[in-house]
Design a binder for these strands. Structure first.
Lengths: 207, 207
DNA sequence: CCAAAAGCGGAACCCTCGTCCATTTGTCGC
DNA sequence: GCGACAAATGGACGAGGGTTCCGCTTTTGG
């Protein structure tokens, strides 16, 4: 709860080390935004977030010109965590198993952040930066898992990482508040689809 | 283009046959809403729709108190079409094939209506009536297909119709404007997941 | 301690929503 | 036809959120 939000150096593009009060405010804004988003969803009024952080709306817009900038800052660590998890899994687990585990982790990430899923897929241009970032980071991570599993013959080889990521993100959006079970089952079903036409190391049965 | 929007009798809950101008305005509003939604998405300003229909906003709100009422009226026929398609398919095609075809039809329906997908899954209480209606109509339709396929042994028997419908609707949301290919592939993958644990290709085998 | 630069805050403006009600219009009995 | 009544209309209005702008405050470096 009192853990620091890290990444607050903000050296600014042009050399300067950034002012102390500015760093403090950015920190307060990120904390406030996390709370408010969790409470009211990602469409919560900007005023509310600024007020919760104890700053004026001007300050909020100064640091986060777009609502998506704020969301992006908040989810960056989560996404980075997924990327690291992929590296760990691919190195330590059986390829098909690693893929399945990672997809479940992805589901947990999306399902946990209330309103994030809809925002990611709204198609609203204001949020375009979000899917761009998430896909840019996660597609290579998933591709490494997918390639490993395909090479091992655990799954079919005709599936694109970007598309599968998309599908996973879609399925992970919870049906209702806090329902992770359904999302997990549907993602497991999708992964079974990957296995369906596999060459197979131990159970071969192509079409 | 000049085809009638049907279902304009509107006998009103209590007997009366409804006034002529009211029917005309409802018709105009539905046409306008279809246009405007297609152009600007389902979040388009209500004023725009009213203006396009040549009526005041008061009239719009009178006939459609909630934005979702308007959307619901527009998609009702699509949904009904899907329900009928399920009945036809289950009667004329091999069960597994019927299921796969219907899921694709579902995808086409969702992908075609710009902004509908996000609205369905936004979680916004204002739109709650939409998923309620869609699920209420389509779940039984899908269940009939699912039961037929499971009885035939084409697919595993442990999947809930409501959950699969949810998954299909999620996956059908297009990645980008007019991209139905990706959605179709991912839904095909999901259906393959249903086949993965199947007992047999053509003999019944309830667990 | 001082001055310049960076940051702050919130009033102001614009846009949209959804309501409300005075006016208009359709319908039905005569 | 015609009048009276109810239904329907449409736009003005108040509430509230988004974003900008600019005078004031704080920090920082010398």
């Amino acid at each position: 709860m009192d853990k620091d939000v890290d990444e607050l150096e903000m050296p600014d593009e042009r050399g300067r080390p950034a002012r102390a009060d500015a760093r403090r405010n950015v920190d307060a804004l990120l904390r406030a935004a996390m709370d408010v988003f969790a409470e009211l969803g990602v469409d919560a009024p900007m005023r509310t977030i600024a007020a919760r952080a104890g700053v004026g709306v001007g300050t909020l817009y100064r640091h986060f010109p777009q609502r998506s900038d704020l969301i992006k800052a908040i989810i960056r660590r989560e996404v980075d965590g997924c990327v690291e998890a992929a590296a760990t899994l691919v190195a330590t687990r059986e390829p098909g198993e690693a893929l399945a585990s990672w997809m479940q982790r992805l589901a947990d990430f999306v399902a946990t952040k209330r309103g994030l899923g809809p925002a990611l897929h709204s198609g609203d241009p204001a949020y375009q930066a979000l899917p761009d970032y998430v896909h840019g980071q996660l597609t290579p991570a998933l591709r490494s898992l997918l390639d490993a599993a395909a090479s091992a013959g655990s799954i079919r080889a005709d599936v694109d990482a970007g598309e599968l990521l998309f599908a996973g993100l879609r399925l992970a959006m919870p049906a209702s508040e806090g329902d992770t079970g359904q999302a997990r089952r549907m993602i497991a079903l999708l992964v079974d689809g990957l296995r369906y036409g596999a060459d197979a190391p131990d159970k071969a049965k192509p079409r």
